[in-house]
């Protein structure tokens, strides 16, 4: 086990898979000579050359579509969006082509590829650059969506995604790129569709994912001091979602708080709440509460922005309300 930064885990995953399989290539804005806008592809151009690490012009629809076409032909592309907020420029390619072509071709075609990149708010870059789009993409059958929070998970999930025969979105977060955590040695895969219990507890289940995992862990320390033992589930994978792990935890703790950075309306937490009330109705001691981003575009001022994404104070307030 070595402690490495999240961005280096992303790089290592791509490097290992490109070494293993010559059909894997990386395309995106600034991924080659610049070494990645967030340095996630550092050194890959030198290692694999310009035929496999490809700087694209700013043409999200064009290079996303190029990669989908290449995947239709049997290559295994990795598309880097500098941020997933820019993926909306390629929305038609992702949702109408990557997601639907297998179905519409009656199963003749596979789309083995990865879309990955930064997402989320908290960096004062304004509403258009701060989207957390995992709930949006998760609504399209044909796509898989994973949102790793830790270096070990982003490496293992990205490697699994590259080897998977479906189009998969690996949604990262700028706030996480510099954070270090332990990563297993050697070649390993993290299964897509399996949640991870970050902390066991008895009083309340907190279901979360992505950057919010770190916020929830911080909040859990405060809750511990108040005598509240929270069980924390990191979904890791939004589509498919590990319902058995979520349901088993709620049946144990009888309380649920959902925490995530998508919007409250039709967000990931809304989906979790709906399924849990159906499957665990008799086990719940209190209404399910959600702590999400707020129903507003992301403001620029940090004084406002800090209130718009899940924070420790809002999480503690919700948990206290549920266990009261």
């Amino acid at each position: 086990m070595a402690k490495i930064a999240y961005r280096d885990a992303v790089r290592d995953a791509m490097s290992e898979e490109m070494t293993r399989d010559s059909r894997v290539f990386l395309i995106g804005e600034e991924v080659a000579q610049y070494n990645g806008a967030y340095k996630c592809s550092k050194g890959l151009l030198d290692k694999f050359g310009p035929d496999r690490v490809i700087d694209s012009p700013i043409s999200e629809a064009g290079f996303a579509g190029l990669a989908i076409g290449a995947a239709m032909y049997g290559l295994r592309p990795i598309v880097e969006f500098m941020t997933f907020s820019f993926s909306f420029v390629a929305f038609d390619q992702i949702v109408n082509n990557a997601a639907q072509i297998r179905y519409m071709s009656g199963g003749q075609i596979k789309i083995p590829m990865v879309f990955r990149g930064n997402s989320g708010g908290g960096h004062q870059i304004g509403a258009t650059h701060s989207h957390a789009p995992e709930n949006i993409y998760a609504t399209f059958p044909g796509l898989k969506v994973v949102v790793p929070a830790f270096a070990a998970d982003v490496k293992g999930l990205l490697k699994s995604a590259i080897r998977d025969d479906n189009p998969i979105l690996v949604i990262e977060n700028e706030a996480l790129y510099g954070r270090e955590s332990e990563v297993p040695d050697g070649d390993y895969l993290t299964p897509i569709g399996k949640a991870n219990i970050l902390q066991e507890g008895t009083d309340v289940t907190i279901v979360t994912h992505g950057r919010s995992c770190w916020t929830v862990l911080e909040a859990a320390q405060e809750l511990h001091k108040m005598g509240i033992r929270a069980e924390i589930i990191d979904l890791r994978s939004i589509k498919p979602l590990d319902w058995p792990t979520v349901f088993a935890s709620v049946r144990k703790t009888h309380n649920l708080v959902c925490v995530d950075e998508t919007k409250p309306f039709c967000g990931v937490s809304a989906q979790v709440a709906a399924e849990v009330q159906r499957a665990c109705f008799d086990h719940l001691d209190a209404p399910i509460l959600r702590v999400t981003s707020v129903e507003a575009p992301m403001p620029f001022s940090s004084a406002l922005e800090d209130e718009c994404i899940p924070n420790v104070a809002r999480i503690i307030e919700a948990v206290k309300q549920v266990v009261a």
Partner: peptide
């Protein structure tokens, strides 16, 4: 390789097929 319903959407896919070859 299809058969595509969104006007112009297939032009990027054709690029990708050619890229792959």
């Amino acid at each position: 390789y299809g058969g595509h319903g969104i006007v112009g959407g297939q032009t990027a896919l054709g690029l990708g097929l050619a890229f792959a070859t």
